[in-house]
Design a protein around this nucleic acid. Sequence first.
DNA 1: GGCTTGCATCGAAGGATGTCAATGCAACTC
DNA 2: GAGTTGCATTGACATCCTTCGATGCAAGCC
Lengths: 138, 138
Amino acid sequence: MSNQEPVELVVLGQSDETAACCPGLLTAPLDEEQAVELAKVFKALGDPVRLRLLSMIASRAGGEVCVCDLTPAFDLSQPTISHHLKLLRQAGLIDCERRGTWVYYWLVPEMTDRLAGILTRPAGDPLPNRTAPAGTAS
Amino acid sequence: MSNQEPVELVVLGQSDETAACCPGLLTAPLDEEQAVELAKVFKALGDPVRLRLLSMIASRAGGEVCVCDLTPAFDLSQPTISHHLKLLRQAGLIDCERRGTWVYYWLVPEMTDRLAGILTRPAGDPLPNRTAPAGTAS
DNA sequence: GGCTTGCATCGAAGGATGTCAATGCAACTC
DNA sequence: GAGTTGCATTGACATCCTTCGATGCAAGCC
């Protein structure tokens, strides 16, 4: 289950040029290819249901959640939840494994770590005091 | 320009209960309302064009970029770029100001900081060694 | 005033996305 | 084996998103 589809994103175990990547979104202009890859991950986070699924999975004590615990938490059909889980998995944010009748999901913390890093600006960045951009115009 | 539409998201200057929010996505299950608000921001990041726009704006030396410098960097029409900038602005990720003929955009670092925080897991989190989930099943 | 330039807004068109009921399939129970 | 349960996949449908050309509007220039 964890390794049957070749579709998974590889923003993580990236190769060479993209590995040099991630000084972060905020320090140098992203090139087209990097942007396309990153956008897939953010798009996966761009839905309330998926965000709640991810947080339910991530905050679970044992680190894993059975789908049977996730589905009833929503007012949505089982196929819909299954679909959202699939998208999160394809984005590399979670992974899963079947154990007997049940399927368990867990967070891939390397991916959220990476996103956090990408959104973090370099240490001594001034935070320009733009509290009042002033009436230069408008 | 910075303050004409009441549409802007307020995931930032949030009020009370949501202010207590943000121990982060990864530590406690998100409630519905938080998820909806957060999803809007991530959705804004879920497009390659917007990611590139954001990174071009964020990584700019002076901290600001004129639209006239952004538009020619893409193979897209001017209205399309304008639309993407609007979405980024509504998400609270950037802001802008008109100066004479030109409009300048800049990053709202508080928002990216907040996102980074949301995606950061608590310090001593074990990073479960799931390198090989083993053949428990599948 | 009239003209030009820079950018936003307005429809419209096509594709992508979220959702569901129906179905398929694996595993467990009898 | 037959039946049941847990989850994924399929196909259909409504909605949303991205993109465009056309247009509007503000600001500077003649």
